[in-house]
Design a protein around this nucleic acid. Structure first.
Length: 490
RNA sequence: GGGUCCGUAGCUCAGUCCGGUAGAGCAAGCGGCUCUUAACCGCUUGGUCCAGGGUUCGAAUCCCUGCGGGCCCGCCA
């Protein structure tokens, strides 16, 4: 019974305290990363002990092997693992029994001792004294299998992390990649900014927002679904290169590629168009794939670097859709026919669904699954994209590209619409087409007004970072790259 | 939202088809062993079989409902 296990561990903690030790000490000074001690130990002969220098290390004990009058226990800190060797002979029988008798797998301890090597050559720290820094009252999972249940791994990510080296490395790698992205953008003189999460309208994308209550302002607010509109207002204000990395919230279902709360990068770059942004996307992804290769060397990342070596393939939205659907002129079909077609292929379509939505569905059905290698899809129908600028030479299209990889959308970019009258009209068309504010691009009056002051021509880019990290880290599910994915209450 | 599979000890899992006293390994406790590497050997403890209802002399097992999760499909840029 769990209570038994906990009771035993609690009893050991009390016994330790009764010997005059603090239950939960405040710090452990002068410690050395275990990787450093390991290096020192590795230089010794088997069974050698270097008594010229004391080391102090701290970390979590994973399991205890008691062999006669010796106890061996791997201790892990952020730098790695080293075996702690408790030896009756060198500690004294009394201390040895007292200390090893009170330890359990999972305890966080500080140990002082000498670098040494065991008879079998394992680099070790021969313990001379120990401080219990934090008792593990709950037992860790089984040492060999760890936690298998994906539900428990998400709900108790802290346990997943200290149990699974792979999980710890994956999230450390995510952090390193985020940092690499920030540094690369800084190098290109993009300024990082933060804009509000809570707003009166959630626009810039078509998704159902989360609702909240702003008591100070006595108004209902929404959580942002994109970063786009406030960032473009910064272009109006005079920023020429800005980006934001932040959470956005879409009140939709979750699956292996979607999370209701996800991390988005959006970037805006004045005086360039979507062609310049395409080159930036190629460079960024190539750069990040190389970083992934450095962090996680192996065949998988070698292949990634190859795949993400520019130039990437490009296909015209209309040409691709015509070719794969076998329907010439599909972009120009009347909306009724598009609805019927989209229905035929399983999409949920109403009598008011706009043409753009139908074309998106058909594209998703016919083309997306075939885009395995990095491929830019460009020049979408105008009706799909109300924030992009009309194409300079293709009527009915906008200047936009999305990068697909393994059938998944990774990036999305436009030549940004900066004509306030056109923008206002596009918002209105959206609102009329669906009549449902929650699943269409919401009209943002402040944004339209901002455009009337003049926004420079600009290229913009959005990247769903969780997906990008999935690709670069080799994860099959978005939940594997999100530390604490949302879960239902139990 | 639809389909499908799963939920048994702290952890990993048998047992369910074909109803009959709740099982193993790890962890834990006791004992043994002075160099182990998932240490080993002996003994022991540990259960809301996800929850509720039904069928039955008897349910972990069969049926229904609910909850949680995985996968596939649908939906959402």
């Amino acid at each position: 019974m769990e209570n038994d296990l906990v009771r035993q561990r609690r009893r050991k903690l009390e016994e330790w305290a009764s010997q005059g030790h603090p239950r939960y000490p405040y710090a452990y000074a002068d410690r050395t990363p275990v990787s450093r001690v390991r290096e020192a130990a590795a230089r010794l002969e088997p069974q050698g002990v270097d008594r010229s220098r004391h080391f102090r290390v701290a970390g979590r004990l994973s399991l205890l092997r008691r062999v006669g009058r010796n106890t061996f226990a791997p201790l892990r800190d952020a730098s790695g693992v080293i075996q702690i060797h408790f030896q009756s002979e060198s500690m004294g029988t009394e201390d040895y029994d007292r200390i090893t008798g009170l330890l359990d797998g999972g305890d966080i301890v500080g140990v002082e001792g000498f670098a040494s090597r065991s008879r079998t050559g394992e680099p070790s720290l021969l313990a001379s004294s120990l401080e219990l820094l934090s008792k593990a009252l709950l037992p860790p999972p089984e040492k060999w299998h760890g936690i298998k249940d994906p539900e428990v791994r998400m709900r108790k990510r802290h346990v997943d992390l200290f149990t699974s080296e792979e999980a710890l490395q994956r999230f450390a790698a995510r952090s390193a990649l985020t940092q690499a992205l920030r540094m690369e953008l800084a190098r290109r003189e993009f300024l990082e900014v933060e804009t509000p999460v809570l707003g009166r309208v959630a626009s810039g994308a078509a998704a159902r927002p989360f609702l909240s209550r702003y008591h100070y302002l006595d108004e209902d607010f929404r959580l942002r679904i994109s970063l786009e509109l406030p960032l473009k207002r910064l272009l109006v204000g005079g920023f020429e290169r800005v980006f934001e990395i932040g959470k956005v919230f879409r009140n939709e279902d979750m699956d292996s590629m979607h999370s209701p709360e996800f991390t988005l990068l959006e970037l805006y770059w004045a005086y360039v168009d979507y062609e310049d942004v395409r080159k930036l996307v190629e460079d960024l992804l190539h750069h990040l794939s190389i970083r992934a290769q450095e962090i996680l060397p192996g065949e998988r990342t070698d292949t990634l670097v190859q795949s993400f070596t520019p130039p990437f393939r490009q296909v015209d939205f209309g040409e691709a859709l015509e070719r794969e659907s076998g329907i010439p002129g599909i972009l120009d079909l009347p909306v009724e026919e598009l609805r019927a077609l989209a229905r035929k292929y399983g999409a949920r379509i109403t009598d008011t669904t706009p043409a753009g939505t139908c074309l998106d569905k058909l594209f998703g059905h016919f083309v997306e699954p075939k885009l395995m290698e990095p491929t830019f899809v460009y020049d979408h129908p105008a009706s799909t994209t109300p924030l992009a600028k009309a194409h300079r030479s293709k009527p009915g299209r906008v200047e936009r590209h999305e990068l697909y990889y393994r059938g998944m959308e990774l990036t999305n970019a436009y030549s940004e619409l900066n004509d306030p009258e056109d923008q206002e009209q596009r918002f209105r068309t959206q609102a009329e087409a669906q009549g449902n504010e929650d699943t269409t691009y919401a009209y943002d009056a402040d944004f339209v007004e901002a455009l009337r002051y003049g926004m420079p021509p600009a290229g913009g880019l959005g990247i769903g970072l969780d997906r990008l990290w999935m690709i670069l880290l080799g994860s099959e599910s978005i939940k594997d790259v999100i530390l604490f994915p949302p879960t239902r209450s139990k």
